[in-house]
């Protein structure tokens, strides 16, 4: 089954139709998705700013990670669940939307960026935990993260527009 076929199958499901046509559920899920940005992206930005060496430079990186990561992970979980539900409500149109595709690819890249960070330079954190300005690789991770997530937010907002939609 092609991806488009899968989306068409999803769209035929009763729950998908009900969610799409719901008076309250859809707007509430969308609001949760947007406002959780503050928790997920907001705190991720703060962590990135520490890794860049421009904010909270007197606080050890390990302390910032230890206190913020549980919140960003929880926020990300809410983002994924609400995002999947939003997709489930309108699968075919979303799948054909160019901004959704850009967002999906950048999400994968952002995941790879985090994975590389946590499996390499972050492992050696005790060597630079107290440095006001962390090593270059950590700063690059933070800069890439800030760039990717910013474009992801913009692309996410643009999914509402069908300027460049492909035709099914």
């Amino acid at each position: 089954m092609s991806l488009l076929g899968f989306c068409q199958w999803l769209e035929g499901q009763q729950w998908s139709v009900q969610l799409h046509e719901s008076l309250w559920a859809y707007p509430i899920i969308e609001s949760v998705h947007v406002l959780t940005l503050c928790l997920f992206m907001g705190l991720a930005v703060m962590l990135d700013l520490r890794l860049l060496g421009v904010a909270m430079v007197k606080t050890p990186v390990s302390e910032v990670e230890r206190r913020l990561l549980p919140w960003t992970i929880a926020g990300f979980a809410v983002m994924v669940v609400s995002g999947v539900l939003l997709f489930y409500a309108i699968p075919v149109k979303t799948y054909l939307n160019i901004f959704f595709r850009i967002k999906s690819i950048l999400l994968i890249l952002a995941g790879i960026n985090v994975f590389i960070f946590h499996t390499t330079i972050d492992r050696k954190k005790q060597e630079w935990d107290l440095s006001p300005v962390p090593p270059l690789q950590a700063r690059v991770t933070a800069a890439v993260s800030l760039t990717l997530w910013s474009i992801i937010i913009v692309a996410g907002r643009m999914i509402a527009y069908n300027w460049f939609d492909k035709q099914a």
Partner: peptide
């Protein structure tokens, strides 16, 4: 929206 995220972070910190 981008500023919303940053502000959310600053307030939540």
């Amino acid at each position: 929206l981008l500023a919303l995220a940053v502000m959310g972070g600053a307030v939540l910190m």
